[in-house]
Amino acid sequence: MLSKSIFKILAKLNKIIIPRYSKKDLNRLSKIDQALIAYRYWVTKNSLD
Score class of each variant (00 low, 15 high):
12 K>G: 13
10 L>P: 15
40 R>W: 03
44 T>E: 13
20 R>S: 03
13 L>G: 09
46 N>A: 02
23 K>G: 08
42 W>E: 13
15 K>I: 15
44 T>R: 13
49 D>P: 10
33 D>E: 13
32 I>F: 04
31 K>N: 12
34 Q>S: 10
4 K>M: 08
19 P>F: 04
29 L>F: 06
15 K>P: 11
20 R>G: 03
27 N>S: 11
7 F>W: 01
12 K>W: 09
38 A>Y: 04
35 A>S: 10
28 R>M: 11
37 I>G: 06
48 L>N: 10
39 Y>A: 13
48 L>I: 06
2 L>A: 11
44 T>W: 11
8 K>M: 07
11 A>F: 11
20 R>M: 03
40 R>A: 02
30 S>T: 00
20 R>Q: 02
12 K>H: 07
25 D>G: 09
43 V>N: 04
7 F>N: 03
16 I>H: 00
47 S>L: 07
14 N>F: 00
19 P>E: 01
49 D>Y: 11
30 S>C: 00
6 I>S: 10
14 N>D: 02
10 L>S: 15
12 K>C: 12
31 K>I: 08
42 W>I: 15
31 K>L: 08
45 K>S: 06
32 I>C: 02
15 K>Y: 08
40 R>S: 02
39 Y>S: 08
12 K>N: 14
26 L>R: 10
17 I>Y: 09
2 L>C: 12
46 N>C: 01
31 K>A: 12
23 K>W: 13
43 V>P: 04
37 I>Q: 05
3 S>V: 02
35 A>E: 08
36 L>G: 06
2 L>V: 10
11 A>C: 15
4 K>S: 09
39 Y>G: 06
1 M>S: 14
12 K>Q: 08
37 I>K: 05
9 I>F: 09
25 D>P: 12
24 K>V: 08
35 A>K: 12
35 A>Q: 09
46 N>S: 03
19 P>Y: 04
29 L>M: 06
48 L>Q: 11
28 R>L: 08
21 Y>G: 05
44 T>P: 08
9 I>C: 09
30 S>V: 00
5 S>C: 07
6 I>W: 06
25 D>E: 13
43 V>Y: 03
25 D>R: 15
33 D>Q: 12
35 A>M: 11
5 S>M: 14
10 L>H: 11
22 S>Q: 06
40 R>L: 02
37 I>S: 05
